[in-house]
Deep mutational scan, measured.
Amino acid sequence: MSIQHFRVALIPFFAAFCLPVFAHPETLVKVKDAEDQLGARVGYIELDLNSGKILESFRPEERFPMMSTFKVLLCGAVLSRVDAGQEQLGRRIHYSQNDLVEYSPVTEKHLTDGMTVRELCSAAITMSDNTAANLLLTTIGGPKELTAFLHNMGDHVTRLDRWEPELNEAIPNDERDTTMPAAMATTLRKLLTGELLTLASRQQLIDWMEADKVAGPLLRSALPAGWFIADKSGASERGSRGIIAALGPDGKPSRIVVIYTTGSQATMDERNRQIAEIGASLIKHW
């Protein structure tokens, strides 16, 4: 067993022997300050990975656009099909120029040879490739089937209704393509630590998230040396920005953090900075 597999395998073990964890309200002060700075709603939740206990939250049951954070859930659904023998990570999918949508930095380079399901999930999570996400959605039956998968997991909140890039419209009070911080955190925890996926698939999912290449300005920018993070960011219209992450010190994840914001007129750089500052406060008061 590799060191990485050993780390994931021990998560349920540590759950039975973990020391108590305590929240620090200073982080919530920073979350509220971020709302003021951005002139927008901010949703935040911090969940103990082992016990599932909510350590701190702000607007945990308000809806926010999922943006590209849905791609982790999508690849979780794909992996569940792999575990059930209904899909193969090595299966090659061919597509055409007509399938390409905006922001497809990986898939646009493989029009001649296609990409495997594994490569598409990697592109969707690590590079947030939109065409990769659409091709993967097709393999499971579309957005409604992803919503059904989540319902079967016990998540009756999170929903995907449209494809890339339309799902990023982020219209106020529109429940399409939205989640709540509490629902997303719970669902992510189930995918990473529960029995829904095999150990190999849980490890694959967290490996893809750990290799995320487009979330550098967010929580990763505040991460001390030696800390672990596996994450997925998202951005969409109407000043929306978000990130879902499993992180912790000593090279292993111990908490789930979900941050969403929407309705801001601030620049992308400012939205990134506010999320990074929330992360810095979280780490300082860990």
Rank of each mutant, 00 (worst) to 15 (best):
Q88A: 11
S51G: 07
D161C: 02
V21R: 01
E166G: 10
Y260E: 00
K252L: 09
T139L: 07
R271S: 09
A246R: 00
F22V: 08
S96Y: 12
R81H: 09
K190A: 13
H5Q: 09
A246F: 09
K213A: 13
L218C: 03
R202W: 13
D250E: 12
I11S: 10
E166V: 07
Y44S: 00
R241N: 06
S264H: 07
T267I: 05
P20L: 04
L38E: 04
G279L: 04
G39R: 15
A276G: 06
R238T: 14
L89F: 11
E87C: 04
A183P: 03
A183C: 07
T193I: 15
L146C: 01
L89R: 04
R92A: 07
Q97C: 08
E195V: 04
P253R: 04
Y44M: 06
I206T: 12
V82F: 05
V82R: 04
I206M: 15
A133R: 11
M67L: 12
Y44T: 00
D113G: 11
K144S: 15
P65L: 03
L247A: 11
G194V: 04
T178Y: 01
P60I: 10
R189G: 07
R271I: 15
T112G: 15
A222V: 12
D207T: 15
M1R: 00
A15D: 01
Q204S: 09
S2A: 12
A235G: 10
H110C: 07
T186K: 15
I11N: 06
I3D: 10
H24D: 06
I3A: 12
I11P: 05
S51A: 07
I206Q: 11
E210V: 14
A200D: 13
K53Y: 10
M268I: 09
F149L: 07
F58V: 04
A211R: 14
N50E: 13
S57Y: 07
L28R: 05
N173H: 14
T262S: 09
M127W: 15
L10K: 02
H94I: 15
H156G: 09
N173Y: 13
S201Y: 08
E237S: 12
F22A: 12
P249K: 06
T186N: 13
L73P: 10
K213N: 08
T131A: 10
K53R: 09
K252V: 13
K252R: 11
T27V: 12
M153D: 05
K284G: 08
R63T: 05
P172T: 07
H5P: 05
A15G: 15
E145S: 13
P20K: 15
L79V: 03
E175D: 12
K284L: 09
A77V: 09
P165S: 04
R7C: 08
M67D: 04
A225D: 14
L160G: 00
I244D: 00
F14Q: 02
R238H: 14
K144V: 12
Q204I: 14
S80Y: 12
P249S: 03
A182C: 13
S96C: 08
V8T: 14
R118T: 12
I243S: 00
E145W: 06
P224V: 01
Y103D: 07
G39T: 06
A266H: 06
E56Q: 06
A225C: 13
V106R: 04
L188M: 08
S254L: 09
T187D: 11
I206Y: 07
G90M: 09
N173C: 13
M115R: 02
K53S: 09
K252Q: 12
L120V: 01
L137M: 09
L219P: 01
P217S: 09
W163L: 08
E169K: 10
D99K: 09
D129E: 00
H151G: 13
Q265P: 12
L79E: 00
A276L: 07
N173A: 07
Q88T: 14
A266V: 08
T187G: 04
I243A: 00
V117S: 01
T267L: 06
E62G: 00
T193Y: 15
H110D: 08
Q274H: 15
D177V: 01
E175T: 11
G263V: 06
W227S: 00
S57E: 09
D48E: 11
E35R: 00
R176V: 04
S80Q: 15
G242S: 05
W286C: 08
D174S: 04
I256N: 00
F17M: 10
E210R: 11
G263D: 03
T186D: 14
E62S: 07
L136E: 00
E108P: 05
A266S: 10
Q88E: 13
T198I: 04
G239W: 03
T187K: 10
F22L: 12
L38Y: 08
P60E: 15
G234D: 04
S221R: 11
E87T: 06
E175W: 08
V214I: 09
R255V: 01
G90V: 12
V258I: 06
V101R: 07
M127S: 07
R41A: 06
D33A: 14
Q37E: 11
V42C: 05
G279A: 10
I229D: 00
V31C: 12
I244T: 02
S264N: 11
R92H: 12
T267N: 12
P249D: 02
I259Y: 01
H110G: 07
M67S: 11
P181Q: 00
T262A: 10
I171V: 13
L199D: 15
G242Y: 00
V214H: 06
Y95W: 12
V31R: 00
I93L: 12
F64W: 00
G248A: 00
T187L: 04
K213F: 05
A215K: 03
L19Q: 15
A170S: 08
R202C: 09
R81C: 03
L135G: 01
D174K: 01
T179D: 00
L19P: 09
D250S: 09
E277H: 04
K30N: 07
R202S: 14
Y103L: 04
H24N: 01
H5Y: 13
L223V: 13
G242D: 02
G216I: 03
I11G: 11
Q4D: 11
F14C: 09
M66W: 00
I206C: 09
F22C: 11
L100A: 02
R255A: 01
N98G: 14
A34V: 09
L150A: 08
R238E: 11
Q203R: 14
I244S: 12
D269K: 11
P12Y: 13
L218T: 02
D36N: 14
L74P: 00
L10S: 00
A183Y: 11
M127I: 10
D129R: 00
K53Q: 14
T198V: 06
V29G: 14
T147M: 05
F149S: 06
M180I: 11
L79F: 01
W163M: 09
F14L: 09
T178N: 01
R189H: 13
I93G: 00
I283S: 01
M180V: 11
M67G: 15
R241C: 04
F14Y: 00
D269M: 11
R176Q: 11
P12D: 07
A15P: 08
A183G: 04
